[in-house]
């Protein structure tokens, strides 16, 4: 069983004295910001890459998030944890990127009509680079674990973000609600639905696999 609050993996950078170093200015702030990046980078990149498929886009979003953190630090009042605020910024940057992609998709659809007429593919978009997964790594995962990871990718965007914030990154219900600007009770309901979806997804896939195994034996 797990409690509502887990231990804070970012305790080091969420301490008030660390925030003081960040806003102090000069070389001390630069040093503290470097530390902030080293402590949080991989966690935020992992958070972003579950919503965006291209590694270049993920990198861009994370870099923009750090820029926004730097820009907004002087206005950050410390009412929430520093990393909770960073999750909010990452969330907005992901939404911006998805909206941009949506617009690009619409433009692409319109330009495809032109391409069909003119046959000119020179302005076509590059295909999205899939996130690199080494074969050894994929093989090392147990099948249920990899099905869960697969199911998370199939969740609707909001449910996926809630699931990530709560179950993957370990934010409390209140912090996740603050990041997404929704009542904690909605986070709870959506999280339960997301987990139910994942369980159903895994069960269905396992059933399919056992049916396939049965068919190959007969």
């Amino acid at each position: 069983m797990r409690g509502e609050e887990g231990s804070d993996p970012f305790a080091e950078v969420n301490a008030p004295e660390f925030l003081a170093r960040l806003v102090k200015g000069g070389a001390e702030s630069q040093k503290a910001f470097g530390q902030l990046v080293r402590v949080t980078h991989d966690r935020f990149l992992a958070f972003v890459r579950r919503s965006l498929s291209s590694s270049d886009e993920c990198q861009e979003v994370v870099q923009e998030m750090y820029l926004a953190v730097h820009k907004g630090l002087s206005k950050f009042e410390g009412k929430s944890k520093l990393t909770t605020w960073m999750y909010s910024l990452a969330h907005y940057k992901i939404c911006d990127k998805l909206a941009e992609k949506d617009r690009a998709h619409q433009e692409l659809t319109e330009s495809n009509e032109a391409v069909l007429i003119t046959g000119d593919y020179s302005d076509s978009f590059d295909p999205v680079t899939p996130w690199d997964a080494s074969a050894d790594h994929v093989l090392a995962r147990s099948s249920v674990e990899s099905l869960i990871v697969e199911a998370v990718k199939a969740l609707p965007p909001l449910a996926r973000e809630i699931y990530q914030l709560r179950d993957v990154d370990g934010l409390s219900g209140e912090d996740a609600a603050a990041v997404l600007e929704m009542p904690p009770v909605n986070v709870r309901v959506q999280l339960h639905r997301a987990r139910k979806f994942i369980v159903r997804y895994v069960q269905e896939k396992m059933k399919d696999k056992s049916v396939q195994r049965g068919a190959s034996r007969s």
Binding site: R2, V37, R38, H41, D42, L45, A46, S55, Q59, V62, Q63, Y66, W131, D132, A133, S134, H137, A140, R141, V144, E145, I148, V149, A151, D167, V168, D169, G170, R195, K196, I198, V199, V202, Q203
Partner: peptide
Amino acid sequence: LYEMAADPKQFANENPIPPEFIDHT
């Protein structure tokens, strides 16, 4: 399965992030 779905350990072995990404940032 529900417990497994709620356990962040599933993601501990998710594709590791290559070190050059943090260097770029």
